[in-house]
Structure formats: C-alpha cells, structure tokens
Simulated assay, not measured.
Amino acid sequence: MLNTKLSHVQKRKLDDYSTKAKSFLLGVQGNNGFLFKFCVYGLLIVIGFVYLFPIIYMSSYSFKSLEDLLNPLISWIPSTFYAENYEVAYRVLDLFPTLAETLYVTVIPSLAQTAVAAVIGYGFARFDFPFKKIMFGLVLITFIIPPQVLLIPRYVFFNELELIGSILSFLLPALFGQGLNSAIFILIFYQFFRMMPKALEEAAHLDGAGNFRIFVTIAIPMAVPAIIISFLFSFVWYWNETALASLYFGNELTTLPIELGKFNATFDQMYTGDTEADNINEGISMAGTMLSILPLLIVYFFTQRWFVEGVDRSGITGE
C-alpha cells in the first residue's frame, strides 16, 4: 500500500516535471517557449550577420596599412588604425563638394516626388471621376516598365529642351509623377488615404472646409508615416542611381556613387608614381566605399525610429 502511494507521488512529480519542461521548451501556446525563441533569435542573428558582414569587412580593411594587408597573420583587427586611407579617399572623392552636389540632386527631387505622389494618391483615393480605374492601372503599369526602356527617348527629349547637365532632368519627371519608382509611392499614399475615415472629411465639410484645406490640415498630418517611408525610399533610390545620373548630368553635376565608380581612375590621375606606395590598394578602396555610404548610414541612424514606425503603420516593407 505504501509502495503504491509512493509510486503515485513519484508519478505526479514526473508529470509536473514533464509539464514544466514542456512549458519551458514549447511555451503555453507554442510561440513563447525556449525552442521557438531560440530558432527566431538564431535566424535573426544569422540574417543580421549577413547584412552586417560587408560593413564590418569594409570597416576593418579601410583602417589597414599596406603592411597589414600583406601580412597573412592579420585578418580582422589591424595592428594600428591607419587613417591615411581615409585622407587619400577624401581627396580622391573631393568629399564635401561632391556630397553637396549629391544632396542637391537627391533631396530636392525626393521632396518633389513625395509631395506629388501624396497629391495623386489622395486624388485617386478620395475622388471619383471618369476612367479612374483605367488611369490608376496605367499609373501602376509604369512601375513595371524598366527605366532603361525610356532612357534614349528621354535623353533625346531632355537634350532638345536643353536640360542635360541640369537637376531639372531629375526634377521635372518627379513633378509630373514620373520620377524613380513614383508609382509605388502613389500606391502607398492611395492605400493610406483609403484607410482614412470619411467621417473626418464630412465633419470638415460641415465646418465649411474645402477639399484643399482638408487635404492640408487633416490628410497630410495623418499620412506622416507614409510621407516618411516615401521620402526615405525615394532619397535612397535617387542617391544610388548612377546610370541615369551619368547620362543626364554629364560633366556638370556629379554624385558620390558616380565618383566612387571612377575612384580607381581618379586615384591613378592624382597619385601616379613608380613606388608601391603610390598604387591603390584594398584599404584605400574600402575607405572610399565607406565614405560614400556613410551619409546614408547617418541618415538612417537618426531616422530609424520614424522609419520603423512608418513601416509598421503603413504596412510597407520595401523591395
């Protein structure tokens, strides 16, 4: 009898231990246990490392001297932080004047594209007019047309208008809803404004507000997440665009990505010599690359909170 009671007690303890172990490993609902968190955080760490590895690699090599690059014993951490690579890259890129031109040809078209996309998206979302669906479909079709298809016709058109070498070659398409990937931004604002309650507009109309005032005082403040998303994506796309910028700007304007593409040739022109120290090496190239992406990293560092909030509220994840 006593043995039977002991066996029941031991069985209950084993059941309790198994229940606790199952709860610890799998969680209550299967999504908050240790195994689930281990898999999720492990996957996030792997994905994060894949994205961070190039930046870590560039940062490490950009501070290496020629001796460290040739030393097989030095892999990641340089023996001394060799800042002269950045001094050379700074002079080759002509950093601050080039950065000023880059911001000039990216920020202004990005602002124009965001503003125009907001107006067009609001018009499609809140107004009814003939052939609305057909026109909206045509707007979305422009997103799947490769910009290379329109490259030559636009160049001929801009050349006839004497816009080559001017920011207007970027600005005018943005003002007419034909900037870089404008269709996706119009779709973002269209979806966002469709979710806006119509009761707000009706109340504003009863108070005597017109459509323009409703758009400025009600729609725009509510669409701040969409505005942030659109501007940041537009800014990055204009910043990274080199083919159109090289063709339209010619020798009049330049950007950091364009100068980075000519980095080796510019270095050879500035530092020509017979000694090995006068030749470009991987450390100098990585320093130039870091300087070219550093402004984007700084922008994201200061805007990441609004960027993440905008993605969360608008449901846009980018490409």
Rank of each mutant, 00 (worst) to 15 (best):
N85P: 04
T254V: 10
V139P: 02
E202F: 06
I186R: 11
P97K: 07
F81I: 10
W306Q: 10
I258E: 00
P153G: 12
T272D: 13
F127S: 03
P130D: 03
A223R: 06
K37N: 15
Q269S: 14
S65P: 01
L151C: 01
P221M: 10
F263N: 01
R213D: 05
I227E: 05
V139T: 14
A21D: 00
C39W: 02
G33E: 09
G250K: 11
F36P: 03
L291N: 03
F215G: 08
F53K: 04
S75I: 14
G288I: 06
D15A: 14
A125K: 01
F36L: 06
Y300N: 00
Y17D: 11
I134V: 15
E282N: 11
T303H: 01
I293Y: 10
I134A: 15
E276T: 13
N211Y: 12
L66A: 10
A83K: 07
L297Y: 11
Y57T: 13
N181Q: 10
T142L: 08
S166M: 00
F235D: 02
F34W: 13
I293F: 08
I284T: 13
F124W: 07
F170I: 01
D94R: 13
T4C: 00
I184V: 15
S23Q: 10
G27I: 04
R91F: 00
A226C: 06
N31Q: 12
E276N: 13
K262L: 08
E319A: 11
A89D: 03
A209D: 03
V105P: 03
I108V: 15
G273P: 02
F157Y: 12
I218M: 08
V105S: 09
H8S: 11
D16H: 10
V40A: 09
V311N: 08
P197K: 13
P221C: 09
S246D: 07
K13H: 08
Q29A: 15
A223E: 01
S18A: 11
M195G: 14
Y90T: 11
Y90W: 14
A115N: 02
S246M: 13
I74H: 03
V46Q: 08
G48F: 02
M286E: 11
L66E: 10
F235E: 05
K22E: 06
P78K: 07
T98K: 12
A287D: 14
P295R: 01
V224T: 14
F212G: 02
E67D: 13
Y57G: 01
V216D: 03
A287L: 08
E84I: 09
T254S: 14
F212W: 13
L69Y: 05
L138K: 06
A100G: 14
I188L: 15
V308F: 10
L99D: 04
D68F: 08
I184M: 12
Y82S: 04
L140P: 05
N85S: 07
A204W: 04
A265V: 13
I144L: 11
K37G: 08
L66G: 11
D268F: 01
F176H: 03
L138Y: 11
